[in-house]
Design a protein around this nucleic acid. Structure first.
Lengths: 158, 158
DNA sequence: ATAACTGCAAAACATTTGCATACAG
DNA sequence: CTGTATGCAAATGTTTTGCAGTTAT
């Protein structure tokens, strides 16, 4: 799930090019945030990312974290998710297949899956409604069957 | 898109039964909120619902709106959506087919669709991950082609 | 009666903004 | 140098909470 050092360099280069092309500055903070996000294999919210940077001794402000995440979204190096909560989660997007999410209501575990039929659905919907579809988000919510699942409800006798 | 008076009575009865069964009180406020939500064919956020009630001369507090929406979610008379924003939207759920959403990035218009292939995907995912899936949310984001679409981006010459 | 509910206002969160200072280009 | 970016703290927007007073049962 981790990227190779070469891939990480490529990601930094893509971000650098994006900033240059837009006449925006390449600051240490921006690259630190990019690195921290890519170091996380998981889905992470802005505040946790902010605190993780702080723990690692990288001094950045929350405002810069939000600002930079916005830039990373614009250059498609990061995707943002709204998993039914008000707080958004972010996930790295480079060298990562397009996928959807399966979430456990009880323990919060997140799994990823990919089903080609979704592409067909997207095409059908685009056709019917005359839309040009840019992206989609499919989230499935349920109960995982892991032994150690927290908040697991008592099994309903069936 | 509007429910018949008979259906609305049925909805109120379902809510009444739910409250009774849980030993919770049937207050005028709760039914006013239920009615206001069902009077809206659209997707509505908690604050707009609160203000709409106020306009109609129904005095309720924001806290009661949120509290009641929570109850309505629990008895499946309402569903909650997180359309990529921090603010949640609510939609009536009774006598309404299970459907998914197509949103215009430019003007915010919301369309609904239903595709049977999603059911197959859900079954496949449940099987593969050993999940018992309770619900899903599929949102597609794109550009509608309506003449009067606000914020429509300039057509890219192709 | 009494336990539950309401309204209010304060608190808690998540995110955005304004502005003085710092710094990349 | 110059205009962007940063950090901070205040502001905004959304949702939750605590509590005194109210009300359905």
């Amino acid at each position: 799930m981790s990227l190779t050092p070469t891939q990480l360099d490529e990601v930094r280069r893509l971000f650098a090019d994006f900033l240059k092309q837009r006449g925006q500055r390449q600051t240490a903070e921006r690259f630190a945030i990019l690195d921290a996000l890519y170091a996380t294999g998981d889905h992470i919210d802005a505040d946790t990312l902010y605190m993780r940077l702080k723990e690692d001794g990288v001094q950045v402000s929350r405002a810069t974290v939000y600002n930079t995440l916005e830039l990373l979204l614009e250059c498609d190096l990061v995707v943002k998710h709204q998993f039914g909560k008000t707080q958004a989660k972010y996930e790295r997007a480079y060298a990562y297949w397009q996928h959807d999410h399966l979430l456990c209501i009880d323990c919060g575990a997140i799994f990823e899956f990919c089903d080609p039929r979704l592409q067909s659905i997207q095409e059908t919907v685009a056709e019917i409604y005359g839309f040009e579809i840019a992206q989609h988000a499919l989230n499935m919510y349920g109960h995982c069957r892991r032994e150690n699942c927290a908040n697991r409800p008592a099994p309903t006798e069936a």
